[in-house]
Design a binder for these strands. Structure first.
Lengths: 151, 151
DNA sequence: CATGCAATTAGAATCATTCTAATTCTAAAA
DNA sequence: TTTTAGAATTAGAATGATTCTAATTGCATG
């Protein structure tokens, strides 16, 4: 597949779903919609494999490659967030509210935590002059209540 | 190699180097020492491959497996820190002072930023009751001054 | 209804890391 | 001082996660 010319993506019409985010128009094919819905209804920060498993109940023939493609598309269009807490599989998150991730190092659970007050972490650190900040990722590692009490 | 009994690690003596960190005594073999020294004199948050390249100038026969082993040992003993900013290779950091990582999404550079005032990020977030925090990782993503000005 | 590109797919390829089994080294026991 | 047990190191295989490739399918426009 070596296209000789490039053309703007087909405009979304008909069966396509659309979602307006950050002022841009994101085209959602059925698969992309399903991947997004699965993630939006998950609170456990699933991996690509987890998402494949869950989407399969509705679309049994979807492939891992398509899940990765959809996740990539959704991420670059700002509909979901990619989370890197440790080595190995990336995790995904559809919570677009300002939040941080608490990661339990015992059971591996990831919990969203929301700010107690409005707060810009970037203000607290001496960043070099001229630095432009686009996003901050705060990961808090430790032991969750369940693991802490049963030990 | 299937040891029938387990014995406490050999006590460091003679040629072994030692470093007292966080109250524990960390045994440093020559390779571990070299890996640590390379990292301590680097400010660019090198990957395991980067470290292998740099250590090779002193120990041409060191293997990637040994570099990983040394990094693992140094990490679990608190002498260095593991940094996950994006997909792919992990990065390592010997700066044990409280700091965060600024990651330039254009050139990939990683810059340490130190706190402007004393600050506990965990205080600003509503963590579930009973949560124990062991460490926090703050990654700030954006564009560094050099990349911002030349675009 | 034909055309062209986007989306999807299966499977191969790549990349990062960990594992395995053999070898070497070192410190303490004999 | 020699022996010896286990730790460290090694090369290369294996695994796991992700990306790439090439072929196919689906859809919207001409």
């Amino acid at each position: 597949m070596t296209p000789s010319t490039t053309r703007a993506p087909t405009k979304p019409t008909g069966l396509d779903c659309r979602l307006a985010v950050l002022g841009s128009d994101v085209r959602l094919t059925p698969h992309r919609r399903e991947v997004f819905d699965v993630l939006a209804s998950s609170t456990d920060h699933p991996t690509a494999y987890d998402i494949l498993d869950r989407v399969k109940s509705r679309s049994p023939h979807i492939s891992l490659a398509t899940v990765y493609n959809c996740l990539e598309h959704l991420t670059t269009h700002g509909l979901i967030k990619l989370v890197h807490l440790e080595r190995g599989q990336s995790r995904y998150c559809a919570n677009l509210h300002e939040h941080v991730h608490f990661h339990c190092e015992t059971c591996g659970k990831v919990i969203d935590a929301h700010p107690a007050s409005d707060f810009d972490p970037a203000k607290f650190w001496n960043l070099p002059k001229g630095t432009r900040v686009t996003r901050t990722d705060l990961a808090i590692h430790g032991t969750c209540n369940a693991c802490a009490t049963q030990s």
